[in-house]
Design a protein around this nucleic acid. Structure first.
Lengths: 270, 270
DNA sequence: GTGGTGTCTCCCCCGGGGGGAGGGTGCAGA
DNA sequence: TCTGCACCCTCCCCCCGGGGGAGACACCAC
């Protein structure tokens, strides 16, 4: 019986590369059973093969090494399964975004759309019920769903006075993280849970309506932006979206209608 | 009318970050319409918004910047669509591998399997018909399918004398690229197209059978490797797989049976 | 003993960004 | 016209998870 597998032998039986195994050792992810204190040679045990394979698979799922380390550190199979399940959920989200990107890409590469109807409108301030948060773009969808559900629960259908909306700081898009407000005009705004009473300030908006699923809403954003610039206006402040027809109204995404309002300033008092 | 959008304004309307726009400029991907020669300020035109959005979407699909550049360089919509379609195919493959990793992970994290039946067998050399190639691991599946189809076309069912097999260099797994031979024992081996007459050398193999889909075949590899090491043998040379029951026999992946043969040497003449 | 192969550490490279320093610009209000 | 501030510039280092290669040492069979 040998004293252990050399790194090359271990690489062969696990189908990992020698370099990768060294990296995993360095990262504290998979330490060889024994390291010769004089030569630095790494020796692995056959019992480590399954661990190496788990790591290999997790990496194939793009689980970050730090998280893999956390998973390997716990022996509790339930905890492991939970972490893995969480990652599968993230994979689903990534897949969803990929699907959305494909939809948007098809539209972008297809025949150009017709004229976009844009209107500049002064929107008075109003007091609404809403939920505030600072979210990452990748998780904005899930966050929105949760906040909207809470809002819906707090105000009965009879108390609502208009379609729901959201206000999104520009940093959310350009920086990946930003302040978001999900709100709904109601007859009697009052706080409850995460729901606050929010005072939406008055502003002048360039408004356009995006028709269809939200996957390619950026196309409408771009067209609205081009319109605004072409009309000697400057954009500034947080965007507001109003969900005239949304997922809560119909499951047919093609029928959704989203109003996009971008705060504008006149550059020259024409 | 302005002379163009500053990088910040362009970032706002395209939902890209300023840094990313600078990088795209540097990479020759999306040059601003005008760069002030004195200040270096970048000014973008509204006509560039759609291009920026296409790039954004392609990046969301993990299309490398170099490839995005190639796509943007051609105006031919057919060529663009072809490149995009090619990438969608790659995405499908990635998705397939992800699915496989999930399957393997479930098995690894589940209850441990029973004893693996391993046999050491001296396999005599034989002359077969086969296709050689140097392939990347990620594309091995597609390559295998193509080679096997050519082999099947060259030799009628009556001329085949055994199940098909493959020989895989270890570098394929540990380095990502390696020499592969797909072969089939036939009554009358003769070259045709990519098919060559191949002389498989005799060797001693540790042999185990993997049952089920190939997604988690690495698990069996690891168990076979552990057995080999535990029996004072050393692995070396290229692995041979024999597809006793494979995708060409039944669509039910759970019924597949794959024999794995790993060339071994005795370490000590016990 | 000797050669070949394996292994060690170390540094640089890749892609696709993010953070921040340090300094120059544009523009609007005073 | 000046001043302040937000914007923009370049430059460098960092992140992740690896690969390539140099130069030096270790192992092992002959």
């Amino acid at each position: 019986m040998r004293e252990g597998l050399t790194i090359g032998e271990f690489a062969t039986v696990t189908h990992l590369s020698v370099r990768t195994l060294r990296r995993y050792h360095e990262a504290g992810l998979l330490a060889p059973k024994r390291v010769d204190p004089f030569t630095g040679y790494r020796y692995y045990a056959t019992e480590q093969i399954p661990s190496a394979q788990v790591i290999h698979r997790l990496r194939e799922l793009d689980v970050p090494l730090a998280e893999v380390k956390a998973i390997m550190a716990t022996d509790d199979p339930d905890r492991r399964a939970a972490v893995v399940a969480g990652h599968l959920r993230r994979l689903e989200e990534a897949l969803e975004r990929t699907r959305g990107a494909v939809v948007a890409l098809r539209r972008l590469l297809g025949p150009p759309d017709g004229e976009l109807a844009v209107e500049v409108r002064a929107v008075p301030g109003c007091v609404v019920a809403g939920v505030r948060g600072r979210v990452e773009l990748a998780r904005a969808g899930a966050w929105y769903d949760g906040a909207m559900a809470e809002l819906d629960a707090a105000f009965a259908v009879g108390g609502r006075t208009g379609p729901p909306g959201g206000q999104y700081a520009n940093e959310l898009f350009t920086g990946g993280t930003g302040d978001v407000v999900v709100y709904r005009p109601v007859r009697d705004p009052r706080p409850s849970g995460r729901v606050e009473v929010i005072d939406l300030p008055a502003a002048e908006f360039a408004v356009a309506v995006h028709e269809g699923p939200h996957d390619d809403i950026d196309v409408t954003y771009g067209r609205l932006g081009a319109w605004v610039v072409g009309h000697a206006l400057a954009v500034g402040g947080s965007v507001r979206e109003t969900y005239l027809v949304g997922p809560r109204d119909t499951g047919v995404a093609a029928d959704w209608r989203t109003e996009i309002g971008w705060p504008v300033f006149r550059l020259s008092p024409a």
